[in-house]
């Protein structure tokens, strides 16, 4: 499905990013595993991809830093010769009630989750325009649509990503570059595993499909948007949330 394609996945050393990197590799893509902090975890993902028979490299870069991102994209094209798929997954949270939220907490989240997406898209646009094609997939969140108390910064960034997805989709459509977003809902992670049954039931009550999502549920939606099966789809946000936000 993705044979011969080169994918760059930001924040791919763990969680949803890791699942996406593995899913793309399983479908034939060579993958650049970007990470900000944990080299050992990124190296482990690279090893898993190599065991699947694909090429992979880990590259450290902080997506909020323009120079880091330029270097990341340069290394990607130097090592793999092209860049066909960009998955903007890297993100952080600094949750706090609005009244208590520090300026630095707001800025950090905007810089990584919103400006980071801008930086990465801008950097890959040149090689993708030259190739006359590409797929850009931005990870947003259903809270970017619904809002969420305690996450003013995160929600603002994620809503911003949805708007950016639409604008860039319009700008680059004539060059056959598709730009879409994926909005996960509640996804099962180490953090949700520790919740009490009562707290879990409270979450299920909000989800028509009555379960938490798995990271693979998100990864499969990304794989679809990265493949030629989605060539006529651009500027859209696909919710992977069990029907929580419609």
């Amino acid at each position: 499905m993705l044979e011969g394609k080169v994918a760059l996945v930001t924040g791919a050393s763990r969680g949803i990013g890791r699942a996406i990197a593995l899913e793309l590799a399983q479908n034939g893509a060579n993958v650049v595993v970007n990470y900000a902090g944990s080299k050992s975890r990124a190296d482990a993902v690279v090893k898993e991809i190599e065991e699947l028979g694909q090429k992979a490299i880990a590259i450290q870069a902080n997506v909020s830093e323009v120079d880091n991102v330029k270097q990341l994209v340069k290394e990607t094209t130097e090592q793999f010769g092209s860049i066909d798929i960009l998955v903007n997954n890297a993100g952080i949270t600094r949750d706090n009630l609005l009244m208590r939220m520090k300026e630095s907490e707001f800025d950090d989240v905007i810089n990584t989750n919103l400006k980071g997406v801008f930086n990465c898209i801008k950097a890959v646009t040149r090689p993708m325009m030259k190739q006359r094609g590409g797929k850009i997939i931005n990870l947003t969140s259903v809270v970017g649509v619904s809002g969420n108390p305690g996450q003013t910064n995160y929600v603002a960034a994620k809503a911003g990503v949805i708007g950016m997805t639409k604008s860039v989709a319009k700008e680059l459509a004539s060059r056959h570059i598709n730009v879409n977003a994926v909005a996960p809902g509640f996804i099962s992670t180490d953090m949700t595993d520790e919740l009490s049954d009562e707290a879990k039931q409270g979450m299920y009550d909000l989800i028509p499909l009555n379960r938490l999502g798995e990271v693979e549920d998100v990864a499969r939606a990304v794989r679809f948007l990265a493949s030629n099966d989605s060539d006529y789809i651009t500027g859209q946000t696909i919710h992977v949330d069990g029907g929580m936000v419609m």
Binding site: R126, M129, K130, E171, S174, R175
Partner: peptide
């Protein structure tokens, strides 16, 4: 040329 054409041309 549209604006994107000019960007490409410069590239």
């Amino acid at each position: 040329a549209d604006s994107l054409d000019v960007v490409e041309l410069v590239m």
